[in-house]
């Protein structure tokens, strides 16, 4: 999530704004949707490489069991993209990075706390647990955790995977519009 946010958020604001990378690319035959696709490919690359480093460390310290740990790579990629694409869709329209900082403080950080990343969700009161379960990060964390421990059921993988995929695709659909609006005003 954090990598998805950093590479799909602040970097998009900079490229569309003061850095000008998008503006210079927009004057070439590239279409806004292609520029967006290029950026998302870069985000995917960053997600995969940083996830791979985590997997290596987990395997080296014997945290995960068996070859299933490899399956966390696409799962973590999907989780990262589920955040990166909607955030990029929003970020491309921003004129300054200050809103991005607020989003990190007031949306991302609380989500971090209540998504079962650091402590088990059973410790939360019932109503908060229901809300936490609906968070995309909870779904991503559970998906990766169960895959790395080899305890995942196919129904669970499909359900959580579909939820994250819907977010990632929804993000791309909106980003196609917002990229065009910003780059071809």
């Amino acid at each position: 999530m954090q990598t998805g946010f950093i590479e799909g958020g602040g970097r998009v604001v900079a490229a569309a704004g003061w850095q000008g990378s998008y503006r210079s690319a927009a004057t070439t035959p590239l279409e806004p949707a292609e520029i967006m696709a290029g950026h998302l490919l870069f985000v995917a690359f960053r997600l995969l490489t940083s996830n791979a480093a985590f997997v290596v460390v987990m395997a080296a310290f014997g945290v995960s069991k068996g070859w299933w740990v490899i399956a966390t790579l696409p799962a973590a990629l999907l989780t990262g993209l589920a955040f990166a694409t909607p955030i990029a869709a929003w970020a491309v329209g921003l004129r300054s990075p200050s809103k991005m900082n607020s989003a990190f403080r007031f949306v991302l950080m609380p989500m971090y706390m209540f998504s079962g990343t650091f402590f088990a969700l059973d410790q939360l009161p019932h109503w908060l647990r229901v809300a936490a379960n609906a968070l995309p990060l909870t779904q991503g964390v559970e998906l990766c955790r169960s895959l790395s421990l080899g305890s995942a059921t196919s129904l669970e993988v499909l359900g959580r995977g579909a939820y994250l995929l819907a977010l990632a695709i929804g993000g791309i659909a909106v980003a196609r519009l917002t990229y065009r609006r910003r780059l071809h005003p």
Partner: peptide, 19 residues
């Protein structure tokens, strides 16, 4: 024909937009 036109045009923007 935006992409085709842009392919045959050169643009020097006001702020250089260099990497």
């Amino acid at each position: 024909d935006g992409p085709e036109i842009r392919g045959r045009i050169g643009v020097v923007p006001q702020d250089d937009c260099l990497d």
